[in-house]
Design a protein around this nucleic acid. Structure first.
Length: 350
DNA sequence: AAGTCTTACAACCGCGAGCAT
DNA sequence: AATGCTCGCGGTTGTAAGACT
């Protein structure tokens, strides 16, 4: 086992960008003889490169049927769909996009889609609403600003910020959704240490209107408006079957109707490593790393949950208090948000 | 025009699976 | 079963090109 000595042997081999001459040599050789053993190919083809570099250059750039150029919206949708099911299995995703390489898809994800999702308030890792406090605070500020604006200008047409009513409503719903997600995730980690959160209605907006929304057992997830997101059964089931582990089917089953068992041993969860692995072992909704002023923490980290006496949790509650100060200062949009969600279902969220 | 920052993407690195011996 | 090797994968880095100041 262990690492291949391939490149270590070849001290002095060229690295970095390929020249057109090198490309030509490689194409010429492979078209005549096939690649055979990549390890020995450079010597046979007269290239001062390691076999690995040749393979990469061929598969990612020189293969004849490779499709270059911009990804279409359809491509993008497929990638997002498959990523939600397969995670960072770029090579698996690439098999559904003929002519596209795993490397290209990976790059496209990291440079375009990831940012797009983040802008939309969606965690690109979990495909669920973001729960980081910065995002919540910015939504909160947006709402605060819009409320202030509407107080100053009774008609939206005069709104100096150009905020439209539907955008504001959307932001409200998203804020609520993010909070639900945050509370859902946070509760089983820290509530034990912070009974204050759940017992204090002022700090727990989910108790507003006498309704404990925390009892919801339906994990919020995102459905992209106007797309077949999560709604392409053929593609989904195919991708799902490709995903070797039990994680996806389990987490999907949980998403689609699972409830939170009362006797879950959360200590077990802290031994897992990634959010997707967590999903596999954990019947709870997917876990999202979120950032606080103290930095990014993993919500599943029981060390934080059980040993941390100040910091992430304190900061968290500080932020919460700040966020909820608006309630006491007369800007009661929590109630508005809840009223809104009880009277209308958003076509975009849930 | 020059310097700095950001973005996009090609290429590299290291790990692990799988196969052969 | 143990070992060595090849290949493929996913994460990361380097750098050219474009945008911005």
């Amino acid at each position: 086992m262990g690492r291949s000595p391939c490149c270590e042997e070849n001290v002095g081999v060229k690295k970095g960008p390929w020249t057109p001459e090198e490309d030509e040599k490689l194409i010429d050789y492979i078209s005549k003889h096939g690649h055979g053993s990549w390890r020995t190919l450079p010597k046979r083809a007269g290239l001062n490169r390691c076999g690995k570099s040749c393979r990469l250059r061929w598969t990612n750039y020189l293969t004849p049927d490779i499709k270059r150029g911009k990804f279409s919206e359809e491509d993008e949708r497929i990638i997002i769909n498959l990523h939600s099911v397969l995670g960072n299995k770029w090579s698996k995703i690439a098999t559904h996009l003929p002519g596209r390489t795993d490397n290209e898809i990976k790059n496209y994800w990291n440079t375009h889609i990831r940012k797009k999702l983040l802008k939309m308030g969606i965690d690109p890792e979990t495909h669920k609403p973001r729960t980081d406090l910065n995002h919540l605070m910015s939504l909160s500020q947006l709402l605060g600003t819009s409320n202030l604006s509407s107080a100053m200008n009774t008609t939206w047409g005069n709104n100096p910020l150009g905020l439209q009513p539907d955008i504001t409503q959307l932001a409200k719903i998203q804020l609520l959704q993010n909070l639900l997600q945050l509370m859902n995730n946070y509760s089983f980690v820290n509530v034990g240490n912070n009974p204050y959160l759940l017992s204090n209605p002022n700090l727990n907006p989910l108790f507003l209107n006498g309704t404990n929304l925390f009892q919801t057992n339906k994990e919020p997830h995102v459905v992209f408006s106007g797309s077949e997101e999560y709604a392409n059964p053929g593609l989904y089931s195919q991708a799902q079957s490709e995903c070797s582990q039990q994680d996806v089917s389990k987490s999907w089953a949980d998403l689609e109707g699972g409830s939170i068992p009362q006797d879950t041993d959360y200590n077990k969860i802290s031994n897992t490593t990634t959010s997707r692995e967590n999903q596999a072992e954990n019947p709870l909704p997917a876990l999202v790393a979120f950032s606080t002023k103290m930095g990014t923490v993993n919500q599943m980290d029981s060390n934080i949950a059980q040993t941390s006496t100040e910091s992430p949790s304190n900061t968290f509650f500080d932020d919460w208090e700040k966020l909820l100060d608006d309630e006491t200062s007369g800007r009661s949009y929590w109630k508005e948000i809840l009223d809104l969600t009880s009277t209308s279902a958003s076509p975009i969220l849930w």
